[in-house]
Structure formats: structure tokens, C-alpha cells
């Protein structure tokens, strides 16, 4: 029996979002609004990974601006590789952002954000070890990302 492995062409210039937790790739895709891009975007799921078992990868054939805060909040294990002329020229390791704005919404019906339309949904990191965030207005915990 012959095993065929799926291959996705390497990109000459752009970004590779690597080490995404397996199954989280589409969530990252949507949060980054990658649907709106005109360039080629490859979403690869369940790739074998020595470090994590399996992982998802997103390749973007363009050097777009990425909100690293969004990525750091959603999955701090992600690495972002910058590709120029077919080679990695930069690697960005993410950290947990101390504050996130309009990435998740406060679910507390008693919170002012439930009625005040012009207010941003802002959460602050309150426990780095537990990766927990709380709403700056009502201190409700942010929904877990995993």
C-alpha cells in the first residue's frame, strides 16, 4: 500500500502561522479575517508535529499586518514565521497580551457593555499561569479559548 502525503507549496514571500493547536486553525482564520484577503491562503489541518502530536498551519502569500495580540490570546504556543525569497527571515514568538480589545465579548448581562454600544469590550490578563482574563468593567471572566 502506498502512502500519499498532502503537500502544500512553499511560499516565496509571506507569513506562516505555525504550531496552531490542532483543530483551532479555522478559529484563528476567522479571527484574523483572512477571508477578506485577495492573496493565496492555505489552511492545513492535523499536520503531524513532533512537539505537539498534531497541529494546524496557515500560510499566507503576502506580508500582511497581523494582530499578534489576537494570536497570543487565542493560542500563545503559535509561532509566526516571516518568509522572504522562500526562506524564513524572522520568527515571532507570541506572548500573552496584558489587554485585549474587541476580541471576545463580555457575556455578563449585568455588565455595562451589554447596553452601551460605543464601549469596547476590553479584558485584562489577571492570571498569567491560568491564562485568565477579566472584563475591565464588571470583572467577569473571559470565555476560555480552549
Amino acid at each position: 500500500m502506498t502512502h500519499h502525503s498532502l503537500t502544500v507549496d512553499r511560499i516565496e514571500r509571506g507569513l506562516v502561522i505555525d504550531h496552531i493547536s490542532a483543530g483551532s486553525g479555522m478559529k484563528i482564520y476567522h479571527h484574523l479575517n483572512l477571508d477578506d484577503l485577495d492573496c493565496a491562503v492555505a489552511m492545513i489541518r492535523n499536520v503531524k508535529s513532533g512537539k505537539y502530536g498534531h497541529k494546524d498551519i496557515i500560510k499566507i502569500e503576502n506580508n500582511i499586518y497581523l494582530d499578534l495580540n489576537v494570536l497570543g490570546y487565542l493560542d500563545p504556543n503559535i509561532t509566526v514565521n516571516v518568509i522572504e525569497d522562500g526562506v524564513i527571515t524572522g520568527k515571532q514568538k507570541l506572548i500573552l497580551p496584558t489587554r485585549i480589545r474587541n476580541i471576545v465579548k463580555c457575556k455578563n448581562p449585568r455588565c455595562i457593555t451589554s447596553i452601551e454600544q460605543e464601549v469596547d469590550h476590553i479584558f485584562e490578563l489577571t492570571n498569567e499561569g491560568a491564562r485568565s482574563y477579566r472584563c475591565v468593567y464588571c470583572e467577569q471572566a473571559a470565555p476560555k479559548t480552549e
Partner: peptide, 10 residues
Amino acid sequence: RHPKEGAALV
């Protein structure tokens, strides 16, 4: 004084 939490901060 407001019934919603965080109103004073806003």
C-alpha cells in the same frame, strides 16, 4: 449610581 456593572468607569 447605575444598575449596570462598570457604568461609573465608562
